[in-house]
């Protein structure tokens, strides 16, 4: 093989690549934030006394978890306008990823809720806390800590899914990589640089989350 690597035409475009990865991170953060709030509601609904709420929660989870994220993205962006709801591409992608994330986060939080021992709820009841305060001061803080490792895995996964936004021309890293690819034909170099950026970013997220886990996850008493 005598391929001559030439990274110069790609590195000239570094502002584009950086803005691409920046937008990807932003999309992930916003979607995960929305997805987490939704997921938390679904997680509580999945354990609600009302059987109606419970089946609603499980339906929500099973529909969204059994759809490929790309299908959700394309459906929302190309399908919804037919139904009279046009969203710009970024909003449309955020909605898609948030919905998708909500199902995974619901599972993460549901596991976290199951990990809170009933004895701690009873200890809160015994000192006279109302159930709302038990949730706020006991169940939620413990749930978040126990859910953190699973949350981190999903965070990385969802961040990588932002590359699918390229299919609806959201200008994130994969979109720019494809653009530079077609302009420079430095195929290997472009995708090597893009891969490297993804890896560095994911690894940085892993490190941050691991540091948080170290501080927050509870040792077994």
């Amino acid at each position: 093989m005598n391929y001559h690597f030439n990274f110069a035409p790609i590195l000239e475009q570094w502002p584009l690549l950086l803005s691409g990865i920046g937008l990807g991170l932003l999309l992930a953060l916003v979607s995960i934030a929305i997805g987490s709030v939704l997921g938390l509601v679904v997680a509580f609904a999945s354990r609600a006394p009302s059987p109606w709420l419970r089946s609603l929660a499980f339906t929500w989870i099973s529909i969204l978890r059994n759809l490929p994220i790309l299908v959700i993205v394309l459906f929302l962006f190309f399908g919804m306008p037919q139904l009279g709801l046009s969203l710009d591409k970024i909003t449309s992608f955020v909605v898609a990823l948030s919905l998708y994330a909500s199902a995974y986060m619901a599972e993460v939080f549901r596991g976290g809720l199951l990990s809170v021992p009933q004895g701690l709820v009873e200890a809160g009841q015994a000192i006279g806390l109302t159930s709302l305060r038990i949730k706020r001061y006991i169940v939620l803080p413990i749930m978040f800590r126990n859910a953190l490792p699973a949350f981190g895995n999903n965070f990385i996964s969802l961040f990588k899914d932002t590359s699918l936004a390229a299919t609806i021309a959201v200008p994130e890293l994969t979109f720019y990589a494809r653009k530079i690819n077609s302009e420079t034909f430095r195929v290997i170099e472009v995708w090597l640089v893009a891969s490297l950026l993804y890896i560095v970013c994911c690894y940085a997220i892993t490190l941050v989350l691991r540091a948080m886990e170290k501080r927050l996850v509870l040792e077994k008493a």
Partner: peptide, 24 residues
């Protein structure tokens, strides 16, 4: 109601077999 139950529970103090301290 729940609020009344909570108020009445606070009239007693309970110590559990498994301690049940809030771990966080």
């Amino acid at each position: 109601g729940e609020r009344e139950v909570a108020r009445q529970r606070a009239m007693t103090g309970m110590v559990f077999q498994a301690f049940n301290l809030f771990p966080h």
